[in-house]
Nucleic acid binder design. Structure first.
Length: 275
DNA sequence: GCGTGATGTTGAA
DNA sequence: TCAACCTCACGCC
């Protein structure tokens, strides 16, 4: 689940469910118990995302900083919350006992779930690059780094100091959509190419927030439009190359390749993506 | 029941 | 470059 679109969606969902409400916070799993005690009874003022970082704002107490890492997941529900399982790091629930349906959110498996100050939050923003999903963030700032770098564009896109929020799926897909070989060096990416990549990330990731999944295939290339069997993938969305090494390229019919790059799986179509 | 892998990041070697 | 961390679903006995 967790690339930037997931986190921005979570920020919006927290806002909708909890903003302006006193919350009840518990940590059945234990690691957040002390902080949960401080949060309980406080009003959630705001929820914000930058890249893959989620910030829940409680005026009196500071911010809850959450990073899902690779395994972190949220489960949402309305009505009476069932007894939490013992891996729930943080359960937030509304406190109104009246006629309104109560809401709860269970967080499991995050890399980070801690209480931080304004200053600590600012330090996180400072070390993150521009985020295609933050209005006003500037892709040109990312290009300043990309264009000076002898690192591959595939590695640069995953570097959160360069662009915040892109993960392994968007990385593979946006490079495919722009016909760029993942091993091309950053400094060999033109300004025009980068501007197109950035604009595309803005579109794709907004769509990702809307649908809560990653879809990158243009209508004319869907398996249906190409007369191929529909794709079944547990990640849920329709993609060109991510985890697709077992099927022909939707555009050229050639083989999708996969390789290790910096301990992550890379996917690309060598005939559609030229150096 | 056991082994595996996954949309991520950090910190030590 | 590598191990560590966090959780769960899936395939294969």
């Amino acid at each position: 689940m967790p690339e930037g679109h997931t986190i921005h969606r979570l920020a919006a969902d927290h806002h909708k469910a909890f903003a302006g409400h006193k919350v009840r916070a518990t940590s059945p799993q234990g690691k957040f118990s002390d902080s949960a005690a401080l949060i309980t009874g406080q009003v959630l003022e705001t929820a914000e995302a930058h890249g893959k970082h989620l910030f829940l704002g409680f005026a009196a107490t500071g911010w809850v900083h959450i990073h899902l890492g690779l395994f972190g997941k949220y489960t949402w529900g309305t009505g009476e919350a069932p007894p939490p399982t013992d891996t729930v790091r943080l359960r937030l629930a509304t406190t109104n006992a009246g006629a309104n349906a109560t809401a709860y959110a269970d967080l499991r498996g995050p890399t980070t779930c801690t209480l931080i100050t304004d200053g600590e939050k600012q330090a996180i923003h400072d070390r993150l690059g521009p985020d295609p999903l933050r209005p006003g963030d500037d892709g040109g700032r990312a290009y300043a780094r990309v264009s000076r770098s002898r690192t591959s564009i595939a590695a640069l896109l995953m570097d959160q100091k360069v662009v915040a929020g892109v993960g392994n799926v968007y990385r593979a897909e946006v490079l495919f959509r722009h016909g760029i070989d993942p091993y091309r060096l950053g400094r060999d990416v033109t300004r025009r190419e980068w501007d197109a990549i950035w604009a595309d990330l803005v579109d794709l990731m907004r769509e990702g927030v809307r649908n809560n999944r990653i879809d990158t295939v243009r209508p004319e290339h869907t398996p249906e439009a190409m007369g191929r069997p529909p794709r079944v993938d547990d990640h849920g969305g329709e993609v060109y190359v991510y985890r697709s090494a077992d099927r022909p390229c939707l555009v050229c019919g050639g083989g999708i390749r996969t390789a290790d790059l910096a301990a992550r799986n890379l996917f690309w179509c060598p005939s559609c993506q030229r150096a």
